[in-house]
Design a protein around this nucleic acid. Structure first.
Lengths: 114, 114
DNA sequence: ATTTAATACCTAAGACTTGGAGGTATATAG
DNA sequence: CTATATACCTCCAAGTCTTAGGTATTAAAT
């Protein structure tokens, strides 16, 4: 299909969402991110694990995130947090996405938000 | 890179933009679309031809657009317009994108908690 | 007791979109 | 006579995502 359906993402938006969530939360683990997005969007948006984990690993490889593994209730959790570079980059990428979204709205003539 | 830069598009948004422009304009040709988007966004958003023409051809193949070629000032223009199916599909895809954008904003606008 | 659901991580294959680079051709302005 | 604007096109590489699969533990339900 051509257009994104309810659950699919727009290319490039996932990593920015991750960065945005981590700006507010200090540290989060993968599964927590999927649940948080589901909660925030009343179940309308789903982050698939096949997209999430590679995205997290890439952000880590780029030096924007660091990890710290903890065992909680017998299960391993891999916590991600923003590095110093990550904080700077997050701001930039969020601004870029916001700018793109504004331009997209100009074309679509939807009501601008953000 | 991970994040979209100023000029790049997000996957899935181009075809919806095309459909949206054609909802208002009855018929447009490719080059006109690139200029219209540039105008609407004050030059901030550029539709590359390498993305546009394949997208137009695909929408045509899906039966959402029909074409009509005219020679204007010695140059060939290929006008695209929405088919009946195209009108219906356009409404649906625009609504889907709008819905996605709202959810995206819910995640990105997140206020700090805890 | 045993199965299912929820939690929690991961990868691989394939589809799909996009950007960039390249190509063709005409009209107009300098 | 050369550059710019107009107007179309295709191919390749890069990148992201979905789908589908895998492993493993805990808690709840049967």
């Amino acid at each position: 299909m051509n257009a994104p359906n309810n659950s699919s993402l727009l290319k490039g938006s996932l990593s920015v969402m991750i960065l945005r969530l981590l700006e507010d939360r200090e540290k989060m683990y993968g599964y927590e991110i999927t649940q948080k997005v589901k909660d925030l969007t009343a179940g309308e948006m789903t982050i698939t694990e096949g997209a999430l984990y590679p995205a997290l690993h890439k952000l880590e490889a780029e030096g924007l995130l660091t990890t710290e593994t903890q065992i909680v209730d017998g299960r391993a959790r891999k916590y991600y947090s923003l590095t110093k570079t990550g904080h700077t980059e997050a701001a930039g990428r969020i601004a870029e996405l916001a700018s793109f979204l504004e331009n997209l709205n100009l074309v679509l003539k939807l009501k601008p938000s953000i």
